[in-house]
Amino acid sequence: MKYFRIIAIIIIFILVFIFLNKLLAPKYMEDLVEGSMTSAYYDEEKNHEVIFIGDCEVYANFSPLEMYQNEGIVSYVRGNSQQLIWQSYYLLKETLKYEIPKVVVFNVNSMRYDEPVSEAYNRLMIDNMKWSKEKVDLIEASMTDEENILYYIFPILRYHSRFAELKQEDFDYLFKTKKNTYNGFLINKNVKPAENLPTKRRLANYSFSDICYDYLNKIRDLCKENGITLVLIKAPSLYPYWYDEYEEQIVKYSAENAIPYYNFTKYVQEIGIDYSLDTYDGGLHLNLSGAEKMSKYFGKILKETFNLTDYRNDDNVSKLYEEKLKEYNKAKEA
């Protein structure tokens, strides 16, 4: 009886501890929804022929459902705010545990960053990722000097001060999630025309760091080992500036490794992007109308160049995507 009581107390202790960890961790469902991007993937059917990997330039600029509607492409965007290249690598590695796509599209913007930027962005990406070896490796690679892996394992250590700031969202989404993206695409319908930008500043060094090349090579090798075609892109944006020196290095890498590369900043007119209408933040990211144009343009290239399947002719997939499109169109009109 005494042992039974001790075991019961230990179990209650563990349950209360788990509950508090869950309660105090940010939910990212109503507020700061960018924190729900990583976990949204887990609820999806894992049958994608194309996976997009990268930072905010992919989740804002490429709409998989637009590509399905126009070309029958089944794709998913695994992108997060300020997703650094090592984070993209581990996220791709995790993705390949669930499915092997035909094509992986990687946005090269993050090649310019060679060290962790901030804990806040790490948290947005990592907090809701499922525990796996990839998550542990990702945390190790991403932590800033002030962070400790224990803060990720036990969110209560990091977020105990939230106790006084808990909102309704923390209770509403304690055991459930809300869909904020459409195959990883985050809709933003706001319009903020591109007007003035800061002066293009000289840099002390334009060369990408060895660490960035190492991870780009790892992405290349991971794709090769799994028979996946890797495609490099630079999503359209006016800022931060994509320097000619950056471009030269990617063009060289692409040629040396026989990897296709598309720099969409050069095709803005052809795509039909109008920066007075198609951006929500003055030229950094495309809004919904810009993403639709971009997706239409790139969808055609993907379909024709990489011989992708038209899933609109597949009964099972088309049934699922009809439902997805209904929700997507509803969100577009809301």
Partner: peptide, 26 residues
């Protein structure tokens, strides 16, 4: 002379740049 503002990817707050004739203040 000119003004620009740059938002962060997910968080509130803007970095604002004020351009004068010979220098720029952010």
């Amino acid at each position: 002379i000119s003004y620009s503002e740059i938002a962060s990817c997910a968080f509130d707050g803007l970095d604002k740049t004020y351009t004068y004739e010979h220098y720029e203040i952010t």
